[in-house]
């Protein structure tokens, strides 16, 4: 990570220079965390694209090498059976490198998937933030109100799929119980 990235992260995190007065608690709230996560996402996307650039370059170089080898194969001096066989092996290994480069590019999908997971975390952080503001803003709530807020946090989130399946099972069980009652 270079200095500009560190600066971007620090800026997003709202870091203060040494000796500065500490920020008020309200300024260090939800927006700061979200900006920080956004900065992390932006940095990882940029770095992933740099890796993709390098992979593209390798792919182009292998392509160029393959082209040169094809030309060499046609030269009169390269018509010996053993030489032709060696060249074919080089071509095959070049193809293998090319395939691995493409595979590595496909694996870069992890960046987008991670980004979306981070966005899901931000969503939940927002809800926790709202919950706390609600609690502090109106004083300590009674147990029924707390339970109600807690339920709404649980129900409105962008729930991961594994939990969705779990939620379905819970709903099904709940409905079965209701029918029995």
């Amino acid at each position: 990570m270079d200095q500009s990235e560190i600066d971007a992260l620090l800026k997003a995190a709202g870091a203060q220079p040494a000796g500065a007065k500490p920020r008020k608690a309200e300024a260090a709230g939800e927006g700061q965390v979200i900006s920080e996560l956004d900065a992390v996402t932006a940095v990882t996307e940029r770095e992933t694209n740099k890796v993709m650039d390098q992979l593209d370059l390798i792919s182009q170089l292998v392509g160029k090498q393959q082209q040169l080898i094809t030309e060499v194969m046609q030269q009169p001096g390269a018509q010996d059976k053993a030489v032709q066989e060696a060249i074919r092996e080089i071509m095959a290994s070049g193809k293998e490198i090319q395939d691995k480069v493409f595979e590595a590019m496909d694996l870069m999908q992890f960046q987008d998937i991670t980004r979306q997971k981070l966005e899901r975390i931000v969503f939940h952080l927002r809800q926790i933030h709202d919950y706390i503001v609600d609690l502090l803003g109106t004083g300590l709530k009674n147990e029924t109100e707390r339970a109600s807020i807690s339920r709404s946090i649980h129900l409105t989130g962008t729930t991961p799929d594994e939990q969705k399946a779990h939620a379905d099972a819970v709903v099904e069980e709940f409905q079965k119980r209701q029918k029995k009652d």
Partner: peptide, 11 residues
């Protein structure tokens, strides 16, 4: 996602 667009374009 520019990364994802790139991967799809590549494919």
């Amino acid at each position: 996602s520019s990364t994802m667009r790139r991967i799809i374009i590549n494919t």
